[in-house]
Amino acid sequence: MKKIFLLAIFSFTISNLFANEIIKNEVLKNLRCLVCQGQTISDSNSEFAQIIKSVVDDKIKEGMTKKEIYKFLSEKYGDWILFNPPIKKNSYILWFLPYLLFILGGIFLYFMIKKRLMGK
């Protein structure tokens, strides 16, 4: 009985570690190395990147979610450190303009085709 219990805990920990690893990889890929030229924290071997990797590792173990980690780091270093720009007043255009353009393009095409439809 004890064996089964231990095994359950063991596999739970392993799968948790595994899940943590995936989360960590994703987070590190979304952070910018501030002292590098455009690299992510995940790819960088700089001292700063090593420190951030360690801190993110700690935060995940403490139970912080991805969103909370991003918020924590962007509060300290500014939004520049995030490769996924948060949807704020200064990024509305960034996030919504593409869709707006797509729709406008569609409308433009619709009227153009309607005007010049064969068989009219």
Binding site: N30, T40, G78, D79, W80, I81, N90, I93, L94
Partner: peptide, 20 residues
């Protein structure tokens, strides 16, 4: 271009990467 425009016009710096 957005980060360039934002930085030049308003002075705020954001990054746009693969997630976007």
């Amino acid at each position: 271009l957005y980060p360039i425009f934002l930085d030049t016009l308003i002075g705020q710096k954001i990054s746009v990467g693969p997630p976007y």
